[in-house]
């Protein structure tokens, strides 16, 4: 009887990885099909950023830096969507830049996916400015800290910065009421902290992919006023938005939808880790009995 148990231990501890892939895929597909939605609430990391956007006077200029590529967009794009929704709802002016070559297209996805669909009265140039991508990594931030027009002669449509009402009174980074960087790596949030947030004393919030969040926590809450870590952070911002603005209550939001599959995936991983350890303990017990 004990021998049989020990066999199970070895089996559990050395499970073929294809079983893991199969069960994880099945779990994810089922969750996506059923549209599982779980309750979410803002954490202490996300709340200060939400409060900052909420309490800025209407018309405040906010700089959004979309520093990510399509690989991390499923985590970072919902954050950008949520912050853009919130900022436009409060009547703030937005300015989009990017330190990634794919940035122009990522910005276009946000302007078309949120602004054009949900805020038809909002106009490019008047309410928001798309400056787009510039090469040079952190040196772009350094140059923007001195003068915006040292890097950008105009917006993506070719209109000079001085003619954009969205950037009225904004000449350098310090003129922005808030900077939010959505970052998937280098250059990204860390460079915004080192070259803008900290030296200029600029209010800086950020979003990053889940795996990158731990490296930014040392900067919170002094150099970074709020942090959205992964799709969880985005879902928390959406939850704050729903709590603060009932008009968003029924609206489908991508991060909240994504949390169901992620939660199920986490549970499956935990179950496999537990199974692996159970197998290890059973095998160890068998070895001890044998000796």
């Amino acid at each position: 009887m004990r021998r049989r148990g020990a066999d199970w231990g070895a089996r559990l501890a050395g499970l073929d990885r294809r079983w893991i892939y199969l069960i994880l895929a099945a779990g994810l597909i089922l969750t996506l099909l059923t549209g599982l939605r779980l309750p979410e609430r803002p954490s202490i990391l996300v709340e200060p950023l939400y409060e900052r956007v909420e309490n800025l006077p209407p018309g405040s200029p906010i700089l959004l830096s979309l520093d990510y590529t399509p690989s991390t967009a499923p985590e970072l794009e919902p954050m950008a969507f949520a912050v853009v929704r919130h900022a436009l709802l409060k009547g703030h002016r937005l300015c989009f830049v990017s330190l990634y070559p794919e940035g122009d297209n990522q910005i276009a996805r946000v302007t078309e996916g949120v602004i054009a669909r949900e805020f038809p009265a909002v106009r490019a140039g008047r309410d928001f400015a798309v400056l787009g991508y510039k090469a040079g990594n952190e040196m772009v931030i350094n140059a923007l800290a001195q003068r915006l027009d040292s890097m950008y002669a105009g917006d993506l449509e070719g209109r000079p910065l001085a003619e954009l009402p969205a950037l009225a009174g904004v000449h350098r980074l310090a003129d922005f009421a808030l900077v939010v960087a959505f970052s998937a790596g280098t250059p990204g949030l860390k460079e915004w902290i080192l070259f803008a947030g900290d030296p200029l004393g600029l209010p800086l919030g950020g979003g990053c992919n889940g795996a990158g969040a731990p490296q930014f926590l040392p900067y919170f809450p002094h150099q970074l006023l709020g942090l959205m870590g992964g799709i969880k952070g985005a879902a928390e911002y959406e939850a704050a938005l729903r709590l603060g603005h009932p008009e968003f209550h029924q609206r489908t939001m991508r991060a909240t939808e994504g949390m169901g599959p992620q939660a199920v995936a986490h549970c499956i991983i935990i179950a496999f880790v537990l199974l692996g350890n159970l197998g290890l303990l059973l095998s160890r017990r068998r070895r001890e009995d044998a000796t």
Binding site: R17, I20, Y21, S71, I269, V273, L275, G276, N277
Partner: peptide, 25 residues
């Protein structure tokens, strides 16, 4: 976009397998 998203999404499966093998008592 679909190519990069697909490649990155595969990470979930590798992470699950790696966690199963690495997190042992």
């Amino acid at each position: 976009m679909p190519l990069k998203s697909t490649l990155f999404a595969l990470l979930a499966f590798f992470v699950a397998s790696a966690a199963y093998r690495a997190f042992r008592l």
